[in-house]
Computed example of a mutant assay.
Amino acid sequence: MSSFAEMINNITPEIYASLKLAVEIGKWADGRKLSREQKELSLQALIAWELRNLPEDQRIGYMGPQECSSKAAPIANILFKSDAVH
């Protein structure tokens, strides 16, 4: 294959599942350990494939809509009171 994009185009759902499992457990299906470079390239391929083929909420790293817990309760303004006398 001549390019990364071409490789991504050739990933089938079965290859995707195999790559994802390999990255998750750090081993190929035959038990050989993934090198650091193999992990990095496989993860890049997974992310690129997901971008083209999966909805956002099913992609690696998706966290969903969230709000900071500090927004749950209002914080009193102790520096500038609205009832201050001028």
Rank of each mutant, 00 (worst) to 15 (best):
G64W: 06
A73W: 07
E67W: 06
I60P: 00
K81D: 06
L46C: 11
E6F: 00
R59Q: 15
P13H: 00
L46D: 06
M63H: 08
A17V: 04
P65C: 01
I8D: 03
A48T: 07
S18C: 06
H86V: 12
R36E: 14
S3P: 04
K27W: 00
E50Y: 07
K71G: 04
L46I: 15
M63N: 09
E50K: 05
A76S: 04
L46E: 09
E50P: 11
K20D: 08
A5Y: 02
S82F: 06
W28Q: 15
A22Y: 00
L41N: 15
A76F: 03
A17F: 00
I60F: 13
D83S: 11
P74E: 14
R59I: 11
S35G: 12
A17P: 00
E37G: 10
W28D: 13
V85N: 04
E40S: 09
L54K: 15
C68K: 12
E6W: 01
A84M: 02
K33L: 12
F4V: 09
M7Q: 15
F4E: 11
V85S: 07
E50M: 09
F80D: 04
D57A: 08
L46F: 06
P74I: 08
S2N: 12
A45Y: 02
A29W: 02
C68L: 13
A76D: 02
S82K: 14
N77W: 00
N53G: 04
